[in-house]
């Protein structure tokens, strides 16, 4: 119970004020965000802040239903980090790499979606170079195929890789944008699906 209280306090007292003052995330098309689970939110990945921003821009009542899928190798290292990541943030640990079958790697994500959770998923698999979209992995198509009724909400994040890039611990304030795209659904064509997803997450982001 009390990790959940900590999650609420962490988001209300630390994450939200920090994002409001030090970052300033401008969410475009907020009305396209899912209002209930199950749903997949997919985004490009440049910063540890990405998952926090995506959780924080959903209504507070969804806080306990929203879970970022995150690298087990990175977040389950050390007792405190594991406790904080799994209990307070509520990540779904994903064992990346190794060329194992999708159902073994993403089984827990599938379970969470089946249970009605909102899952935050980074199809690049890891934080890439600041402000550019890396190659998307195929796990997302497998998930979409397994759960064709779960709406997929693409969000293009812009600027967070400047605020807190990979390999740095000091956040530097910049305004950021989060563009919520049209919801995607699995229609049976893998290449088409990947192309639409890549275009809603990548490309040059204009500030106008």
């Amino acid at each position: 119970m009390w990790p959940l209280v900590l999650r609420l306090l962490f988001f209300l007292l630390i994450v939200k004020p920090f994002l409001l003052l030090a970052v300033g995330v401008n969410v475009r098309n907020r009305n396209r965000l899912p209002r209930r689970g199950p749903a997949l939110i997919v985004a490009n990945h440049n910063s540890h802040l990405d998952a926090l921003v995506l959780v924080a821009m959903l209504p507070l009542r969804l806080l306990f239903r929203t879970r970022p899928a995150a690298s087990a190798e990175y977040f389950l290292r050390g007792r405190w980090r594991t406790w904080f990541a799994t209990q307070v943030i509520g990540i779904i640990p994903v064992e990346t790499g190794g060329g194992r079958p999708h159902d073994e790697v993403l089984g827990k994500v599938q379970d969470a979606l089946a249970a009605g959770d909102i899952v935050i998923f980074f199809p690049e698999g890891t934080r890439g170079e600041p402000e550019c979209l890396g190659k998307l992995k195929t796990g997302i198509t497998w998930l979409a195929q397994q759960l064709p009724d779960v709406p997929i909400c693409p969000v293009r994040l812009c600027g967070l890789g400047r605020v807190l890039p990979k390999g740095d611990w000091l956040p530097v304030p910049f305004f950021c944008d989060a563009w919520v795209g049209e919801p995607l659904r699995w229609e049976g064509d893998r290449q088409r699906f990947m192309a639409i997803l890549a275009s809603s997450l990548g490309g040059e982001v204009s500030r106008q």
């Binding site: 890039p165 000091l170 530097v172 910049f174 305004f175």
Partner: peptide
């Protein structure tokens, strides 16, 4: 603060200068 943040968001900055911007 907001004005400086907006200005720094608009202009190109160097990755090496993160500490300097801080």
């Amino acid at each position: 603060f907001l004005a400086l943040k907006e200005y720094l968001t608009l202009i190109p900055t160097r990755h090496a200068d993160r500490r300097v911007l801080f």
